[in-house]
C-alpha cells in the first residue's frame, strides 16, 4: 500500500467513525429514547420525536399537591434587593436622630449599651441583623414590650437607617484587662460544631466572613448574660422569629452547660 493509499484509507475510516457515532447519537437520542419513554407516558411516537427535537412544546408545569397552612409565618422580613439596597446605601447619619432620640436611652448614643446584660451593644453590629429584629418586633414575630412599642410607628426605611447608623459605629473599646477564660471545648463547638448531633459550628454563620444567612448577627462584645438568655429563649421556643428554626434547632441541641460555655466564649470575642 502506497503512503497516499494509506492516508486515504485513514481519512475515510475516521470520517466513517465520526458519522457513525453521530448517527447513533441522533438515533438513540431523538428516536429510540423518546419513542420508548413516550410510550410509557402515553405519548405517540411522532409527538415524542417532535418533543425530543424541541419542535413541539413539552408538558406544561402541572399543578402539584399544595396545601395552605393555618400557621402564621415566623417573620415577615423579605430580603429583597430593595431592602438590601436601603441598608447598604442609607446615608451615614440619616438614622442619627432616631438613634440618639429613642434607641440611645438603652443602647447608648454610639451603640454601647447602658446595661449590656439586658440591652445588647449595637455598635458595629450587622445592619441586616438589626433591621431584621426591628422588623420582627414590629410584626410581633419577636416579643418584647419595650421594643415592640418603640418600633410600632417606624417605617421600613427608618428601621433601615437606624440599623445602618449603629452598624457604622465603632465597636466597644477593647478592655485591656481582658483575659480569655473559655476553654478548648467551647472553641471546638464554636469553630467545628458537632457532626454527630447535626450541630453546625457557630462560626459557620456568625463569623463576619461566613457566607451564611444575611440576617445573622456578628457575635462580639455582648455580655454572657445577654447571650445565654437569648440562647435559652431559642431553646425553649420563646424566641421564635428565626427563619426555618435555624437557631431554635441549634440551641435545642445544646446542653445547659454548653450554652453557658458558648455565652462566655462569645462574650470574650472582640
Amino acid at each position: 500500500m502506497s503512503p497516499e493509499d494509506s492516508d486515504r484509507l485513514w481519512i475515510r475510516s475516521s470520517i466513517g467513525v465520526v458519522v457513525g457515532v453521530l448517527a447513533f447519537g441522533i438515533l438513540s437520542g431523538f428516536v429510540i429514547m423518546p419513542v420508548v419513554q413516550g410510550a410509557q407516558a402515553g405519548i405517540d411516537p411522532w409527538t415524542a420525536i417532535c418533543r425530543a427535537l424541541g419542535i413541539s412544546p413539552g408538558s406544561p408545569a402541572a399543578q402539584q399537591p399544595r396545601s395552605a397552612a393555618s400557621g402564621v409565618p415566623v417573620s415577615n422580613v423579605i430580603w429583597s434587593p430593595q431592602v438590601l439596597n436601603t441598608l447598604s446605601s442609607a446615608p451615614a447619619d440619616a438614622g442619627r436622630e432616631l438613634a440618639v432620640g429613642v434607641c440611645a436611652a438603652c443602647h447608648g448614643e454610639l451603640g454601647v449599651s447602658t446595661d449590656p446584660a439586658q440591652f445588647p451593644n449595637m455598635a458595629g453590629q450587622s445592619s441586616a441583623a438589626i433591621y431584621k429584629q426591628l422588623h420582627d418586633y414590629k410584626s410581633g414575630a419577636r416579643i418584647n414590650d419595650t421594643m415592640q412599642s418603640v418600633v410600632q410607628d417606624l417605617t421600613d426605611t427608618q428601621m433601615a437607617e437606624a440599623a445602618a447608623y449603629f452598624a457604622r459605629r465603632a465597636r466597644p473599646p477593647w478592655d485591656v484587662t481582658w483575659v480569655r477564660t473559655a476553654g478548648p471545648e467551647a472553641d471546638r463547638l464554636a469553630r467545628t460544631g458537632d457532626s454527630a448531633r447535626g450541630l453546625p459550628a457557630c462560626e459557620s454563620c456568625h463569623s463576619p466572613a461566613a457566607a451564611g444567612p444575611v440576617e445573622t448577627p456578628v457575635l462580639f462584645a455582648q455580655t454572657p448574660q445577654y447571650l445565654s438568655v437569648q440562647m435559652r429563649a431559642f431553646k425553649s421556643g420563646q424566641r421564635r422569629s428565626d427563619l426555618f428554626g435555624r437557631m431554635r434547632d441549634v440551641a435545642g441541641k445544646l446542653s445547659e452547660r454548653e450554652i453557658d460555655m458558648l455565652a462566655q466564649y462569645y462574650s470574650e470575642m472582640r
Binding site: 453546625p200 459557620s204 454563620c205 451564611g212 426555618f244 428554626g245 435555624r246 434547632d249 441549634v250
Partner: peptide
C-alpha cells in the same frame, strides 16, 4: 437552608 433542614 444554611445549615439545617426544617424540620429536622
Amino acid at each position: 437552608t444554611q445549615f439545617s433542614f426544617a424540620p429536622q
